[in-house]
Nucleic acid binder design. Sequence first.
DNA 1: AGAAGTTTCTAGAGTCATTAAGCAAACATA
DNA 2: TATGTTTGCTTAATGACTCTAGAAACTTCT
Lengths: 237, 237
Amino acid sequence: MAAQTGNRRERLRRATLEEIRTAARLLLTSHGSEAVTINAVAREVGMSGPALYHYFSSREALVGAVTADFFQELTERMEAARDGHPGGPSAQRLLAICRAMRGWATEHPAEFGWIFASPIPPSDRREDSARHQAGQRFERVLLDEVAALWEARPFPVPAPGELDPSLCEQLAAYAISLDGRLPPEAVHVCLSCWSRLYGLLCMEVLHQLDFAYTDMEPVFEECLREVCERLGLPYAR
Amino acid sequence: MAAQTGNRRERLRRATLEEIRTAARLLLTSHGSEAVTINAVAREVGMSGPALYHYFSSREALVGAVTADFFQELTERMEAARDGHPGGPSAQRLLAICRAMRGWATEHPAEFGWIFASPIPPSDRREDSARHQAGQRFERVLLDEVAALWEARPFPVPAPGELDPSLCEQLAAYAISLDGRLPPEAVHVCLSCWSRLYGLLCMEVLHQLDFAYTDMEPVFEECLREVCERLGLPYAR
DNA sequence: AGAAGTTTCTAGAGTCATTAAGCAAACATA
DNA sequence: TATGTTTGCTTAATGACTCTAGAAACTTCT
């Protein structure tokens, strides 16, 4: 942690900012997305409407800030799960990360929905937005783990040339931005796994599979089993 | 088509309803979700605010109605794609259906987002809601095709007992509601494929993979290739 | 204590969803 | 043709919302 810089004023301001974010989150989880209004949040922290504009320039900014918080919380949970299995086999670490992700998602469905199952507002699509930063850190948790796994023992990937050339080109470009730790084909496998986990979790928090499943836990585990298989890892509950 | 039942009044009413839905959709696609307000829609069709309550009991009802429209449009497009390959090989039909789905999604990202990437409001979760009906019809397009495929030539499925017992139980319950055309393990494969397509399309319309891909078409095709492989079908572009 | 800066307030303009009251035309019936 | 009902809309009004513009109060520093 950085030393608590700043004088009393700054500390107070930080505390208020924190309180506002907490209030916003509480409103989201207890009364839904719609309930997170500037007025309601202000009421909750005991100040009146317009005062909140000294802390956030608009409702969108507030929403963006708490969304970034959620993103960071999820990432920290995944990192903690990973660091809970130091030195152990890759499979265990990766499974722990994925399960931590679902754990957080099911415990915080509204928050997960805000991160992943909502259109990203234009202001948050800029590279310097807090959300984007948080997204990159999140991305790195999974990618680092897969890269480590690849370096330790490469998993089977499609042969070069087997993938569509246009796809390969895009993958190559992205692989470069990853310092070339993974070849394009391995990046594809990685993104494909991520997309499966993403889809399943979105379906769970959005209740898109309620027509078939009442408990998604074993469905997710089965998906993990398949992911492990694809990465050449042993699966264990 | 059913004969245009009803007298002049009813016809006029239906036309107005249609006009309102069209206006709502136009606002969604051109100015985003937020812009679909009762007032704005009413302004668009040339009547003033409250008059709209003679046609829809609330904003939510209006949103639900147009969402159901979208669902139906998507389904019809998929059915048309399927019927464009009558009698042909299963693989071609299934691929055509999936590509039609993505085609509609990419042409109508906002509409697709409303159907699949938004929390389903409680009112629309009831069995008798238009949305639920539309959802079932959509579901059937994919399921029917997979069931036909299964009856013609079963694809490889996990051996009974290989899947988690709790998962099996849920699958068995759902399989029964499908008239037992598919065994639980095949239902699982089917739902797993659906979840992959769903995840990928959501990521595309929500721009969740922009950090890696600029063109999702080959990514989707690669996913289709894998789906085909799993269903024992030949893949062709 | 006084100056400077920060925080919060009240007031208000303009938006939204929704309800209520009422007007006028279209229609059905006598 | 006269009467009453139904239908389609209007305006008015309520209470919520976002956000702006000043004035008031409070902190901190000199």
